[in-house]
Design a protein around this nucleic acid. Structure first.
Length: 556
RNA sequence: GCUCCCGUGGUGAAAUGGAUAUCAUGCCAGCCUUCGAAGCUGUUGUUGGGGGUUCGAAUCCCUCCGGGAGCACCA
C-alpha cells in the first residue's frame, strides 16, 4: 500500500547497478535501526565495491549520481562506510497519514489474495483443564490468522480436540468410582490428575482404565456413554467461554473421535506405507531420516499419528484450502515431521499444502507444569488474577464498564507477554511481571490508543477539523507510521506476530514521547494538522492491536 | 547415544549478514495550576568460550561448554 516508495527505490538501485555493469543478485534495502540514517538504506555499494574496483564510498556516490531523483524521496545521502540512505519526502508521509485515516484496512496488502488458509490452533482436550499452556498457541494462532487476513487471504479457523483417548478413560474411571452421575467442571478438574495417579500406581486400576478406554471407543456401555457425553459437553461449553474472552471464533471443530476411524481406514488402505511390526502398525520413518512411529497399537486402536491422518481428510472435506497451518508445541516438532512425511505418501493430494509451526513452552522459575499431576495454572484463573490487578489500577478509569475494561486489559497483558517474542521460544512465566501493566506491555499499547482516541474526540468537540497537507511535520512519529504496512507484511511473510509487536511498541513509545512534548490543541492553525496525525496514529494502533488479537478500548 | 530447539545488561526480551547492539524491568534523579502520569526525561549495566567465512557476524560454518525437548504402541 505504501511500500511503493521502497519498490521504486529498489528498482532505481537495480537500474543504476546495471548501467554501471555491476552484478548483484539481490538489491538490499532495509530500515536503518536509527531513523537519523534515513527511512530506507542500502548497502549495495559495500557489497559491490570489490567488483567495481572502487572504494565503497566513492561507488556509493557514483550510484547516487546515476539514480538522480526518486519520487517520494526528498534526500539521498551517502553515509558511514558507504551506505546509501533515503529520506522520505513530506508528500509520501502525508500520503500515509491520508491513507491511514481513509482506509479501514490500513496496513493490509494483497500478497495472499485469493488464497484460503486453514489455521488450526489451541487444541485443548475435553476432560482436562484449559491451562495457560493453551493460551500460547491460541494467542499465536489467532494473531497469525489475522496477519493472513491482512495479507488478503481467506482464513478458516479450526480447533482439534482430543475427546477420546486414555486421558478420558482416566477421568471417567474416577467419576465412576465416586458414583458421580452429574459431573461439574470441578469434578472433571479433580478426576484427571487422580486417575493419572491411579493409572501409574495401581495395576488393577490400570487394567480397568485400559478396558474403559476400549469401551469408550466402541461406545459399548450405556452408563459410560452417558458420563462421557455429559463430561464432553461440559468441557466444550467451558472452553467456549474462554475462547469468547480471548476473542477467538472457530469456523470448524474437529474431534479425535471422528478422526480416529478415518485414520484407521487410511492406514489399512496403505499396507505398503504402514507395515506391521511387533503386533502394531507402524511407519518406518528411518527410511527418511526420521523416527519410526506407531500408527495403530496392538489393540488396533489409532494413536495420535493415525488420527492426524484422519484429521487431514476431515479438513479437506470441510473446505477447499491452499494451505493448512497447525500450531503446536515444540515437544511435538519431531513427531510432526514424521506425520507430515507419512501424510505426503498416503495423501499425495495434500503435498505442499501442509505447514506447522511449533510454539515454545511455558516455563516456571519454580518448576514444571503438568496437568497430569494437577500442578497447573488454569487459563481462567490467570485471566481473573490479571483482571483483578487491572481493576485495582482503574480507580480513576473513564470507562463506562470497569468490569469489561479490566477483562480487556487482562487479555492484553497475557497476550502481549506471549506475542512479544519469537514463536518457538519458551516463555518464562513470571507472575509479578505478568501482573505488571506498565512499560513493555499490552496495556501500554492500549493506553496509547485510548489517549489518541480521546484526543481526537476532544478536537471534534472543539470544532477542529483535521487537515493533511505536505507541510506536515516530518518527525520520527510520522515516519514510523509510514512503515506500518511494511511491518504487517514482514510479520505475515514470516508468520511471526512478534515482528509486529516490536514495531507497535516502538511506534506507541514514539507517540507517547511526542505527546509529552507537543501540545496538539493549541488554538493555532497547526492544530488541524496535528489532529490528523493523532487520528492516523489512533487508527494504526487500532489495526495493529486487532492483528495481535488484543482489544483496543476507547477509554481506560 | 542420536536428532531438534535455545544461550544477548541483575531479570525478561529485540535486532532482514549492516552503521555507536535496541527496548522494557530493576536501582537512582527529575516532570502533573496545558489535550489522560497505566505517561515522559535523564543515569547505570549486555552478545557462553575458541576457531573460520565476509568489506562487515549476536546472526552463517566448525568445535567445546551450558540449558531444554523428542527418540515404539501417551498426546
Amino acid at each position: 500500500m505504501n511500500s511503493f516508495v521502497a519498490q521504486d527505490i529498489q528498482d532505481k538501485l537495480a537500474e543504476a547497478l546495471a548501467s554501471l555493469d555491476l552484478i548483484s543478485d539481490m538489491v538490499s534495502l532495509e530500515h536503518p535501526a536509527d531513523l537519523k540514517n534515513g527511512d530506507y538504506s542500502s548497502g549495495v555499494a559495500l557489497q559491490c565495491a570489490k567488483q567495481a574496483g572502487m572504494a565503497p564510498r566513492a561507488l556509493a556516490e557514483k550510484i547516487v549520481a546515476t539514480i538522480g531523483a526518486v519520487e517520494g524521496v526528498a534526500k539521498i545521502e551517502v553515509a558511514g562506510a558507504g551506505f546509501i540512505n533515503f529520506y522520505l519526502a513530506s508528500a509520501a508521509l502525508a500520503e500515509a497519514v491520508k491513507t491511514a485515516r481513509k482506509e479501514d484496512m490500513w496496513g493490509s496488502s494483497a500478497t495472499q489474495k485469493g488464497r484460503t488458509i486453514m489455521m488450526e490452533y489451541t487444541d485443548p482436550n475435553p476432560f482436562k483443564e484449559f491451562h495457560i499452556g493453551h493460551l500460547i498457541p491460541n494467542a499465536l494462532g489467532e494473531s497469525v490468522s489475522r496477519l493472513f487476513q491482512f495479507s488478503g487471504a481467506t482464513v478458516k479457523r479450526a480447533n482439534y480436540q482430543g475427546d477420546v483417548g486414555i486421558h478420558v478413560a482416566k477421568s471417567i474411571f474416577i467419576l465412576l468410582e465416586k458414583n458421580i452421575t452429574e459431573p461439574t467442571i470441578a469434578d472433571l478438574s479433580a478426576a484427571y490428575p487422580e486417575g493419572s495417579k491411579r493409572y501409574e500406581e495401581d495395576l488393577a486400576a490400570k487394567a480397568e482404565i485400559d478396558a474403559l478406554n476400549k469401551k469408550i471407543y466402541e461406545k459399548s456401555d450405556a452408563k459410560v456413554n452417558d458420563l462421557y457425553q455429559k463430561g464432553r459437553k461440559l468441557s466444550l461449553e467451558h472452553f467456549e467461554e474462554i475462547y469468547k474472552m480471548l476473542g477467538t471464533k472457530f469456523d470448524y471443530y474437529f474431534f479425535e473421535s471422528e478422526a480416529g476411524p478415518i485414520g484407521v481406514k487410511i492406514v489399512r488402505e496403505h499396507p505398503d506405507i504402514f507395515p506391521e511390526s511387533e503386533g502394531a502398525v507402524i511407519f518406518r520413518g528411518e527410511e527418511y531420516g526420521l523416527h519410526t512411529r506407531v500408527f495403530l497399537n496392538k489393540q488396533g486402536l489409532p494413536t495420535y499419528e493415525a488420527k492426524e491422518l484422519g484429521l487431514a481428510r476431515l479438513k479437506e472435506d470441510a473446505c477447499s484450502f491452499d494451505l493448512t497451518m497447525t500450531v503446536t508445541g515444540n515437544e511435538q516438532g519431531e513427531y510432526f515431521k514424521v506425520v507430515m512425511k507419512a501424510m505426503e505418501l498416503a495423501l499425495p493430494e495434500l503435498r505442499g499444502k501442509l505447514a506447522y509451526k511449533t510454539n515454545g513452552m511455558l516455563r516456571f522459575a519454580e518448576g514444571k507444569m503438568s496437568s497430569r499431576t494437577g500442578n497447573i495454572i488454569r487459563g481462567e484463573d490467570l485471566l481473573s488474577d490479571l483482571a483483578a490487578a487491572a481493576k485495582a489500577r482503574a480507580s480513576e478509569s473513564r470507562a463506562d464498564d470497569a468490569e469489561k475494561l479490566s477483562q480487556q486489559i487482562a487479555v492484553a497483558a497475557i497476550k502481549y507477554q506471549i506475542l512479544k517474542q519469537a514463536f518457538s521460544k519458551d516463555i518464562i512465566f513470571d507472575r509479578e511481571r505478568a501482573l505488571s501493566l506498565e512499560g513493555d506491555s499490552g496495556p501500554y499499547l492500549q493506553y496509547a490508543h485510548a489517549r489518541a482516541h480521546q484526543l481526537v474526540a476532544k478536537a471534534g468537540e472543539q470544532g477542529v477539523v483535521p487537515a493533511v497537507d505536505t507541510s506536515i511535520e516530518s518527525g520520527d512519529l510520522v515516519r514510523l507510521l509510514h512503515r506500518f504496512p511494511e511491518a504487517v507484511e514482514y510479520a505475515a511473510a514470516h508468520s511471526e506476530p512478534h515482528l509486529l509487536t516490536n514495531y507497535l511498541i516502538e511506534f506507541a513509545a514514539a507517540f507517547n514521547s511526542w505527546y509529552a512534548q507537543v501540545q496538539v490543541l493549541d488554538g493555532t492553525p497547526e492544530a488541524a494538522r496535528k489532529v490528523a496525525l493523532v487520528d492516523a496514529v489512533c487508527r494504526t494502533l487500532k489495526n495493529g492491536l486487532w492483528i495481535l488479537g488484543i482489544p483496543a478500548p476507547e477509554r481506560m
